[in-house]
Design a protein around this nucleic acid. Structure first.
Lengths: 224, 224
DNA sequence: GGAATGCTTCGACAAGGATCGAACTATGCG
DNA sequence: CGCATAGTTCGATCCTTGTCGAAGCATTCC
């Protein structure tokens, strides 16, 4: 008999199909209401409500009440990381689809991971930022480099803005198996990409699709 | 309604207490027989057998038959990584014990992670090996450095031994939140530590306890 | 060959939990 | 104040799944 952290409790929360669908939906990073999550999960509102209270009690979700709306979101990056890890295993051991569908391909190129960009583009971006010493990597720790202030202020991103969350964080990418940039800076960059309309979020998916012009802009700024 | 990798299936496999105990036990890296796992999980043999076949079917375990013994082990590093991630969340959201027990402290210092060393000692070791250019880090990729051959051959470890598994791999440490060394090299180093009796494995736990003399030896070789 | 050990399969039972309809509470709008 | 919308709670139902004892295979040892 073992003791220790109750991993069965956490895993069984993710282990119900309805709840797994909800969590997957929330990996998109935007908080959703109970009814939206009910729809995502394909269950009735009462059922969804019951699941949501369990996830809350389990500490996997955060809740923001706004008037009569209640927005549920993932509790934090650590939870998101766990889901990514489970997705990785499910992809690996799951029934290998002969050909990954077009949506899969898009997901591999660029997708939202909680609140920042992930996928090939994101991994390439982080590599390039480190090459140019905009960022410095020290193991899984990422810090601002000498060129950071000038580079990001030109984009209208204030890297000095303080928050409880770290500015930079490395996040393991399940498709590329390398790190991409998370933290407030990662989130700010994703915001920028969407705000500038370089890319748009695929409806009902985590995929992020760049427009031809937007892709050029993005590569110009981050991959040059 | 969503589709995609069946994460609920994987998570629900881990979500049963008996199975979670088995998987946690296997995080120690040594393959165990069905009866040993039944004992670990605190269930009868038939029950354990049923769980094991489910875990096999789910692709989380590997099986090696040796005569009338059947040794079950984790299917691979990716599965181990997923379990670590779940442990991390469970630790974070779980009922915060006021004081981590002595075993927890020992686990933080040094423990077995699948087949290699983890914990503060392991993270420090990797840092130092990279400083000394025995190893080279390139993002989450770790490669052998110029000083590798001489350093490891002096220890009787053949870094050129080829296997399907990569020689070096970075593995995220849940207690320190930084990477430590995995891969065949990580496994070989752990073997060395145990073989030289620098440390012994705590019975029925993942903790690795260094002897005073062994600790000096280890630090001499890897942290100097 | 026969006994012993390791493990799996079968059958029956019990319990947990997912589900939904209906009733209830809360917020916003006119 | 009254109606509409968002969400939770309650109760009943039903089904999945974990559980173990007993019996059945397989392998090794004597």
């Amino acid at each position: 008999m073992r003791e220790g952290p109750d991993i069965a409790r956490i895993a069984s929360l993710v282990g119900d199909p309805a709840r797994a669908n909800m969590l997957t939906a929330l990996m998109g990073g935007t908080a959703l209401t109970a009814s939206e999550l009910a729809l995502e999960a394909g269950v009735s509102l009462p059922t969804a409500s019951s699941h949501l209270s369990k996830l809350m009690e389990g500490g996997l979700l955060s809740l923001a009440s706004q008037g009569r709306h209640r927005y549920y979101g993932l509790a934090g990056p650590q939870v998101a990381g766990m889901i990514e890890a489970i997705i990785g295993v499910a992809e690996a051991v799951g029934p290998k689809r002969v050909r990954p569908g077009p949506r899969d391909a898009a997901m591999r190129v660029a997708r939202v991971c909680y609140d920042h960009l992930a996928g090939e583009q994101a991994v390439a971006m982080l590599d390039r930022l480190i090459d140019r010493e905009v960022l410095l990597r020290d193991d899984s720790e990422i810090r601002l480099g000498p060129a950071a202030a000038s580079h990001f202020s030109a984009l209208g991103i204030d890297v000095e803005a303080k928050a409880r969350r770290p500015v930079c964080r490395a996040c393991l990418d399940w498709s590329v198996r390398r790190s991409h940039l998370a933290g407030t800076l990662g989130a700010a960059i994703l915001d920028k990409i969407i705000a500038e309309k370089w890319a748009r979020r695929e409806k009902g998916s985590r995929a992020v699709v760049f427009s031809p012009a937007g892709k050029r802009e993005f590569e110009n700024v981050f991959l040059a």
